[in-house]
Each structure stands twice: as structure tokens, then as C-alpha cells.
């Protein structure tokens, strides 16, 4: 029952996307299966769906990668190096993660306009990195602080520089946590809506959520079949990630939130 509660909208999405007519429930009958909507979404250039997908993939992947690296360096500093005001930094970053996005978008829009970054990848990339950093930092700090300090000492005595301690010992040992941070940042960036809505104007940089939200028919009536087919294509990778890596995701969510 629980599973069906979680799944039914998605299954419905699947059903509509495969159907000729969106109103098949109303007409009590003919469920004509067809892949026509998928064909349209994937081949019709004027729908720009593939552009959105590419933009999303590029922006989400690169911001997750960059954000995870930056957060890992920072978590190393917080847990292992002398740093005045560690607690203040952590608190400040946690507080930053609670700021409403809308409070940032007004200024960001003008900043990006001035930089000429509206509707560019970097215009989304940088805010996304900043936006996902707090969560990654908290997650990686709790991950790093679970690695015993004696391991660092052993590495130092074995002749490592502090850089080698990070690179050859901490990062490999923390790999599950780093992967979780990457996954969570990726999902967060892939799902982000408001920044993408404000900072993009067309298929040059527009991401999938905005693309699908603004998807209008060419002829008045909503092309529900196409929208749902696009939604399926866009969410299938996410669903696959969830199915494959749910353990990492759960660990990441609880590590980042509960310890915080």
C-alpha cells in the first residue's frame, strides 16, 4: 500500500505517456498503447526536450562534481586541520542552507545580467555549487570525523605529507560518503527549479524541470502524452540512481541531517 502510494503518480505518468489519448480514463475504454509520444519528444527538434536534458545533465553533473571536491577540501580542514572558529563556520554554513532561494534570486538575476551570464551554463553552475555546498559539507564533516584520527597519525608516521594524508588515506576511506555527497548534490541540482526559472531564457541553458513545467502545446490543448513521455525520460535516470544507490542516498540524507 505504501509502495503504491509512492509509485502511483509515476505509474500514471508511464500509462499516459504510452497512451494515444490522455483522457483514456474518461472514455472508459480503449487503451491504445503506442510509443508515439516518446518518438515525438525525442525527435521533434522544436520541442527542445533533448536540449533541456543535455543542459540538465551538464549543469547537474559539473556542479555536483565541483561542489563535492570543494566540500571535501573544506571538511578536511574542519575535521583535521587547525582552523580558528570551526564551529562558527559550520553554523554559518548550516544557516546559509536555510535561506529561502527567493531571497537570493533577485540579486542573482541582476548579477548574472551584469555578467552576461543569463542563460548560460556558468550562470547556473555557480549558484548551484554554492547552493549544494552546505549539505555536502555537513555530510562530509560527519563522514570524516568518523574516520579515526590514528589513521592520519599512522599515515604521517609512514611518511605522508598532509596533502598525501587527504589524497591517499582519507579520500579513499571516505569514498562512500563522498559518493553520497555527489549523488545528493546531483539530485538537488537536477531538481532545482527557481534559479533555473529566473536565470535561463530558452533552450540554450534551460533545464529539464523548467522545460517540462513550461511545456505548452503548439495548438492550445495540452500535449499531455508528450509531457508525460518527457517526464518519464527525464526521471528514468533518477529512478535508476535511486534504485541502485538507495543505501548511499539514505546514509547521506541521515548523515547530513541528523548529525546536524
Amino acid at each position: 500500500m505504501m509502495a503504491s502510494f509512492c509509485l502511483f503518480p509515476w505509474l500514471y505518468m508511464l500509462l499516459v505517456s504510452l497512451n494515444d489519448r490522455p483522457d483514456f480514463l474518461g472514455t472508459q475504454g480503449s487503451i491504445g498503447l503506442s510509443g508515439g509520444h516518446y518518438l515525438a519528444v525525442l525527435t521533434e527538434r522544436s520541442l527542445h526536450f533533448l536540449d533541456y536534458l543535455r543542459n540538465s545533465a551538464i549543469v547537474a553533473l559539473s556542479s555536483a562534481a565541483l561542489g563535492t571536491v570543494i566540500a571535501a577540501l573544506a571538511a578536511f580542514a574542519v575535521t583535521r586541520l587547525d582552523l580558528p572558529g570551526k564551529a562558527a563556520v559550520l553554523f554559518f554554513v548550516l544557516a546559509a542552507s536555510m535561506f529561502p532561494q527567493i531571497s537570493l534570486t533577485g540579486y542573482l538575476f541582476r548579477l548574472m545580467t551584469r555578467l552576461g551570464w543569463i542563460n548560460t551554463y556558468q550562470g547556473l553552475l555557480f549558484p548551484y555549487v554554492a547552493w549544494t555546498l552546505p549539505l555536502s559539507l555537513w555530510l562530509l564533516v560527519s563522514c570524516f570525523s568518523q574516520i579515526p584520527k590514528e589513521l592520519d597519525k599512522a599515515a604521517l608516521v609512514d611518511g605522508c605529507t598532509s596533502w598525501q594524508v587527504l589524497w591517499r588515506v582519507l579520500l579513499p576511506v571516505a569514498r562512500p560518503g563522498i559518493f553520497a555527497a555527489f549523488l545528493l548534490s546531483f539530485i538537488a541540482a537536477f531538481n532545482e527549479f527557481l534559479f533555473a526559472l529566473m536565470l535561463t531564457t530558452d533552450h540554450g541553458a534551460r533545464t529539464v524541470p523548467v522545460g517540462i513545467a513550461l511545456f505548452q502545446g503548439l495548438h492550445g490543448e495540452m500535449p499531455w502524452g508528450d509531457i508525460m513521455a518527457a517526464s518519464i525520460v527525464a526521471t528514468a535516470p533518477i529512478a535508476a540512481i535511486v534504485a541502485l544507490f538507495q543505501r548511499h542516498i539514505v546514509a547521506g540524507l541521515t548523515g547530513g541531517a541528523v548529525k546536524g
Partner: peptide, 27 residues
């Protein structure tokens, strides 16, 4: 657990589109 996670992982804008269809008048 993976099923339960799915709604969280899908972009809100996309799932909202599905809800729009679910609430759709008539069909």
C-alpha cells in the same frame, strides 16, 4: 525503501505536472 525514495528524488516541477494531470478536469 527505493520506492519510498522515488517521490523525493523526482524533480518537483515534474511531479507537479503529473499532479496537474491527475487533478485535470474531466479526464
Amino acid at each position: 525503501r527505493a520506492c519510498v525514495l522515488l517521490p523525493w528524488a523526482i524533480p518537483t516541477a515534474i511531479s507537479a505536472r503529473v499532479w496537474e494531470l491527475i487533478y485535470g478536469y474531466g479526464y
